[in-house]
């Protein structure tokens, strides 16, 4: 297992009122993303535990694109990764942002 951590300054707070959401499942080629609204509005953080070792640069690129596109201000993402491909990672991150953007608890 390899632990990776990313922190970004972002331009805007993520939408919605939910405090947390979870998407995905930990399996081969899949991952789960737990997203929580716990940070200041201009920050976001991602903590990743991945079974695929040595892909730090790929994660850096995928997450850079994601933060730029969604501006997930105030959100902390905790990721358990079973070795998902970059497109699957992008999809789950987008789903996580959409889920927490819904109104509710």
């Amino acid at each position: 297992m390899e632990d990776l951590r990313f922190q970004h300054r972002v331009r805007a707070r993520a939408g919605g009122t939910r405090q947390s959401a979870i998407v995905g499942v930990v399996a081969s080629g899949n991952l789960e993303v737990l997203v929580e609204r716990v940070l200041p509005d201009a920050e976001c953080a991602l903590d990743i535990k991945t079974a695929a070792i040595g892909f730090g640069e790929v994660w850096t690129a995928v997450i850079g694109d994601f933060v730029e596109r969604y501006s997930p201000g105030g959100l902390r993402f905790s990721i358990n990764d079973g070795g998902a491909r970059p497109d699957t990672v992008s999809l789950r991150l987008a789903q996580a942002v959409r889920s927490i953007a819904e109104n509710g608890q």
């Binding site: 297992m1 947390s20 979870i22 499942v25 930990v26 789960e32 737990l34 929580e36 535990k49 991945t50 079974a51 905790s78 358990n80 990764d81 079973g82």
Partner: peptide, 21 residues
């Protein structure tokens, strides 16, 4: 729920990924 992060205390012995629930 998953935000409590009550993961298995044993999977790390096998270097396997955990799931939050």
């Amino acid at each position: 729920g998953p935000e409590q992060r009550e993961v298995s205390p044993h999977l790390k012995i096998f270097d396997l990924p955990e799931q939050f629930d």
